[in-house]
Simulated assay, not measured.
Amino acid sequence: TTDDLFETAVEAAQKKGYVKQGDITVITAGVPLGVSGTTNMLKVQVVGHILANGEGINKQKIRGRLCVCHSKEDLVKEYQPGDIVVTQDTDNTMLNQLKTASGIVIEKGSLDAHAVTVGLSLDIPVLLNVKNATDILKTGVFVTLDCENGVIVAD
């Protein structure tokens, strides 16, 4: 299928080092496949398996374990130092955990959000406006948080 062809082409380009996770690729193809002169398709595709996207506040990129918190109690119970904290929003009651977090992902937010202030103060990546992050992402999963491209990519 064309989807299989596109996936194979992107994987080959990634193995050769031409593209990396989070890069945007433009692929041209012709249908029916294998017939010269039939280029009639164009696809824009992000490299890798994007789990979620949002707005990065800096250009940092880190790999880490997710700690998804539906409540402050979840954060206290599930958090391990170095985790990427995923929550609807942050506040001062979370500072003990946020001080040792490797990144922050929030569902809401603007540039004056608490998470932004914490992230800039601690020099850690923060991704804002990640819709349904606490439903989509799962605690314990290792991901790459790429704030430059505004994506969370499965490892």
Rank of each mutant, 00 (worst) to 15 (best):
T25I: 12
N40Q: 01
G103H: 00
V26T: 07
L137D: 05
P32V: 10
L111K: 14
L128M: 09
E73Q: 14
E11V: 03
K77Q: 14
G109S: 04
D89I: 02
A13R: 11
T87G: 06
I27F: 01
A12V: 11
G37K: 08
V141K: 14
E148V: 09
A9R: 12
N96Y: 10
D74G: 10
I124Y: 01
I106H: 07
D123S: 09
R65C: 04
N58I: 09
T39C: 05
V116E: 05
V126Y: 02
G56I: 00
I136H: 06
V68L: 11
L95T: 04
L42K: 05
L111T: 12
S71F: 02
G37S: 06
V31N: 02
G82H: 04
T90E: 06
T87V: 13
Q21Y: 08
G22I: 08
D155H: 10
V10R: 07
L122Y: 12
S110V: 05
T1I: 11
A115M: 07
L127G: 10
K20E: 15
N53T: 05
T87A: 15
N129H: 03
K20T: 13
L127E: 06
G54W: 05
K77H: 13
A113I: 08
G150K: 09
A154Y: 04
V86M: 04
D112R: 13
T39H: 05
K20I: 15
S71G: 01
L42C: 04
S36N: 08
K59L: 09
A154E: 12
T144R: 13
L111F: 11
I57S: 00
T134V: 15
I104W: 08
S121M: 08
L120E: 11
I62S: 01
T38S: 06
C67D: 11
Q88Y: 01
K72F: 05
Y79L: 04
L98F: 00
T8R: 15
V105M: 02
V86R: 03
L111Y: 14
I84H: 09
L122Q: 10
P81R: 01
K72E: 14
L128T: 06
K138A: 07
L111C: 02
G56A: 06
G54M: 02
L128H: 06
T39G: 02
V44T: 05
L137Q: 05
V76P: 03
G48K: 08
L120K: 14
T39A: 04
V153E: 09
G22V: 07
